[in-house]
Each structure stands twice: as C-alpha cells, then as structure tokens.
Design a protein around this nucleic acid. Sequence first.
DNA 1: ACAAGTCTGTTGTTTTTCCAACGGAAAAGA
DNA 2: TCTTTTCCGTTGGAAAAACAACAGACTTGT
Lengths: 223, 223
Amino acid sequence: MKKYVSILKRTKLFSGLGDDDILSMLNCLNAAVRQYNKGEYVFRQGEYIHDLMILASGRIHIQKEDYWGNLNILNEIRSGEIFGEAYIVPDSGTLMNDVIAAETSTVLFFDMERILTVCPSACPFHTRLLKNMFYTISDKNKSLVQKLSYMSERSTREKLLSYLSDEAKRQNSSSFSIPFNRQQLADFLSVDRSAMSNELCKLRDEGMLDFHKNEFTLHEKIR
Amino acid sequence: MKKYVSILKRTKLFSGLGDDDILSMLNCLNAAVRQYNKGEYVFRQGEYIHDLMILASGRIHIQKEDYWGNLNILNEIRSGEIFGEAYIVPDSGTLMNDVIAAETSTVLFFDMERILTVCPSACPFHTRLLKNMFYTISDKNKSLVQKLSYMSERSTREKLLSYLSDEAKRQNSSSFSIPFNRQQLADFLSVDRSAMSNELCKLRDEGMLDFHKNEFTLHEKIR
DNA sequence: ACAAGTCTGTTGTTTTTCCAACGGAAAAGA
DNA sequence: TCTTTTCCGTTGGAAAAACAACAGACTTGT
C-alpha cells in the first residue's frame, strides 16, 4: 500500500493530508487495489457498485452500449481522478455503463460505508477526508451542470457562444485561452469540427470575437 | 423554525430523521430562512456562495445570461429540492448563473462549514445528515451524467434511442412509460417537438419500437 | 533542413433540423 | 352533451449541420 501514498497525496480527495495520515487511513477505509490490462472490464453495465474508486495510474473509459448495440465513449478518467461517485446511493440501481481500462491501469477501491461513517477510533483526519470528498463530488457536479448548459443550446453557434462566454466570466477577462484544440472543442461540445470552425470564422467576421490558436478575445456588442 | 420541520421531513436531505432531531439540527446548523417574491433574485451571477439551500416552498429558476444578453432557463428547482450544492468548494469561484424566484418562495440556508464539520456536541444525527447529503448530491450527479449522455448524441433520432434505451434498462423491461408528454420530452432532449414527433413515427414505421401515448415498447433488432 | 504528420480554415453537397401552420383526436371544463 | 383547449402527428419550405475533401500553415522528429 505504501507505494500508492505518493500518488494519492496529489489527488483532490487526499489533499492536505500527510503521508502517515494517508497510510493509516488506507487501513481505516479498508482499501483494496487491483491491476487491469488494456481492454479489461472494471465494471459491466448491470452490476451493483458499493465502492468509491480512485484511478492510481492508467486511463479508463466510461462507455455506453445502447439497446441496438451502438457504442459511445462518455467519459475518460485520468490518473488521480475518482469514479463511481454517482452510484454510492444504496438504492441507486445498477450501473448504466461499462467501465473499461483504456490502458494498463491501477485502481484503488474504498468502502463507501466506512468513508461516510465516522470511524470509532475517531481517526483524526477523517473529517478532512469527508470535506475533500464533498468538494470533489461537488466540483464534478458543477462542471457537469456547466457542460449541460453548453450542450442544451440548439445551434453550434450558440454552443460556442455560451462556452466562450462562460470561460470569459471564469477567467474574468474578455481575453483568455482554452485548453482544447479545435477537434477537442468540437468533441467537447458534440458538434462537427469543420462546421464549428466555419462558425468560429463567421463570428470573427461579424466582429463578435477574435482568436489566434487557443487564445480568444470577445468583443462588446455594438448597439 | 418549527413550521418548516414538516416540510423538511419529506426532503431527501432530512429523510429518516424525527421531528425533534430536525429541530435540534436546525439550531446546530445555524439555519436561516428568507422569503422571496416572484421575480426577486436569490443570487446573482458573480456572487460567492457559502451556504447550501433548500427550497421549502415555491419555485426557483436557475437562469443564465450570456455575454451578449441572451437568456436561458437552465433548471427549475421545486419545493423540497436543494440547490447551490455545486458551489460548496471554497475556491469554486463565483456563481455562473442567476437564481430567481419564479413564484413566491421560501428558502432555508444552511452553513456548509457546519454541515461538514462534525459538531462539537456530537449531535447524534449529524452522521445521518452527512450520508443523506452525499446521497442527494451523488444522485443529482448521476442524473446529470445520464442527461449528458443523451444530449451528446448528434441527432434527434440518436437522442431518442439513447434515452428510451436507458429507460428500458432502468425499468428492466422493453415496455415502459415515460414521465413526459411530447413537448416536455423535446425540451428535455433539447430538440424541436415536431421534428422529434416525426422521428418517433419513423422509428415506429421501421419496426424499432411502438408507442401509445407515454407507453413505449422497444423491439429487438432483426439480423 | 527536410520529410512526415497534424491542425485549421474553406468549400460544395447531402442530410437533418427548425419553424410555422394545420387538422384530427383526446382531454378538460361548463 | 357540447364547447374549448391541449396534445400529437403531418407537411413543406427555410435554415443549419454533417460530411467529405482539400490546401496551406504549423509541428515534430530525424
């Protein structure tokens, strides 16, 4: 278990905790580890989940296969991120998606029940962990709502505007950079790249904004 | 405060707790109440939020106004639901949306810091509250991810298929009913009603599914 | 410095969605 | 029962997005 402490230290869930604290908590929380090879299933649609997982290394895909067999990749979990947090409710039903290792991955499992129940020995850092966990889930929630607000726009143009508008707000400046290239932005907003590129240039020609690579500048509306 | 206990009892956050427990916890958590008239702002974009809110009565809209002044209603909070849970992270930045009373509303405010810190008097039901809160947020998270998966489909047809497919899984039957009429389903999936209606009929004509009003039946793919 | 590969804008065609409008069926109300 | 309203499917034209294909700019690696 010791070798995972340095990894866990850098995750949101264990931030602010010392090596010894983490190590003692791994016992306290009854943590388990498992390795998965590329392509191996971590969970399958229909299973019940009782643990919270942290991906210690590797890359994991949350996939969905619909009634007629069409496959879709919903989310990519990267090293240090948690997953399964949406299924910690006792009667939340079975897993809707498949969870598959996209490359060789190491997963840590934590007993949810233990995390939520303050341990009898009054493990002193449990409170900190609880807070961190709230923050992590709450943060994930926030970004989900935001993404939802972009995707609920009807047109590519409006999706772009709402996303860029939000980024300007978030970075508190009408000039800002985004963490995507064009293809990634298109995937993020679920639109066609070339159509999006086209729309971006129209917006530029109309004087709404300017951009150079990933640097964007929004302009005031002229009245 | 007493008059709110009966309302709170029916919320997920306070489920499983007795009247006296709730009342003592309202003190423990330093709860505050405020009334809002229709059209009044509860929060404005740009504010910092430190509390978790429960809507005791009324209806509240989470709205978004983009950089150029276009308005969008993102979410409707109904009586008994929580909101603001996405902003409990200390450095989560300022609120991205406006929060407005859609009708006369009563809002209860809870100090987040107190909820997350086990109170010194070891308030015996605090642990239960913490669990409930995890469950509530986690549940919200789950439904957000699901909705996101429908909306990330490119076409109306695929949005319908992924939603209906999921409902069939969830209700564990290829025959099931949905809680929407056509217009509501279209709003939920962010598509045009008539186009969606059209697509539904095409799917029916192709033998993929059948429906009568809100009752749907999915058919196996013929190979 | 050169070659190979990636990223981005552009264009024309096909496909899909949006929009407005209408009529029939069902539901709600008087 | 009769009227009014809501819901739903249908249609045709306008608008937008998807798709395929390509060329120039920029990167990367050798």
